[in-house]
Design a protein around this nucleic acid. Structure first.
Lengths: 120, 120
DNA sequence: TTTTTAATTCCATACTTCTAGAAGTATCGA
DNA sequence: TCGATACTTCTAGAAGTATGGAATTAAAAA
């Protein structure tokens, strides 16, 4: 089931508007940002943005809380980390040194973190 | 242009068969694996696999070399690393401590690596 | 040369996703 | 309670993607 969750997460990121939203929320950190502000910053119609935010939330990459009539969206740090680890799991059969120098800092570093279960 | 490249890379990963292929090749490391072996291991028809490998190659996530009548596919470590960094760039406005403990090991660590340009 | 093996390309079908207009719900201020 | 604000849901046309059968190319073996 892990793999299917990862596909859902990656699908949700594989779209220009959603990737912009995601990166904006990663930048914003735990404080998050109201949907309206995101719409304004990225110039996306409110209804279209709402659709995309729902996709990201379904994928477990963002979470939301309601404050007054605003809905604050925030990255889901834990799940994002798990997804990253999933992508580079067992990299190079556990021989990180085989990776080229310009390789991902995370590549071949988190590979042994097998205790992490993809719960995205 | 960076963002569009990332979307292409993520789209290529956002499919069950391709994600399996990708993870298999990450595991395999620089040695890589012939298309036929991948098809056999993952039980994917040769023509379907060929289509998926092409997608991953177009996205810059794998590369190939011909050896006799086999084509050896291998992960493209550098581009994979750049993609990972792109996803967590400027995480928490440069305050990694704001990330929850279970957050990605890569999250909030690679954020300052702005010298890395997405060339995926 | 002919056959076998390895992989790719072409194609039609089936399916999924994106987009924004229109309408709906919820909250707050007057 | 009325109107404005903040979002979400519904909808359907347009566009994009996946799949495998059949044909094709290319290299090695017989």
């Amino acid at each position: 089931m892990e793999l299917k969750m990862a596909v859902i997460a990656l699908s949700s990121l594989a779209q220009e508007s959603r990737l912009k939203v995601f990166r904006l929320l990663v930048k914003a950190g735990p404080e998050g940002m109201p949907a309206g502000t995101i719409a304004e910053k990225l110039k996306i119609p409110a209804n279209t943005l709402s659709f995309h935010l729902k996709e990201l939330a379904n994928a477990g990459l963002v979470k939301s809380r309601k404050v007054g009539r605003s809905v604050i969206y925030e990255m889901h740090a834990g799940n994002i980390g798990v997804l990253m680890s999933f992508l580079t799991e067992d990299c190079c059969q556990g021989h990180p040194d085989l990776c080229l120098p310009q390789a991902a800092p995370s590549c071949c570093e988190t590979s042994t973190k097998k205790e992490q279960i993809l719960s995205v």
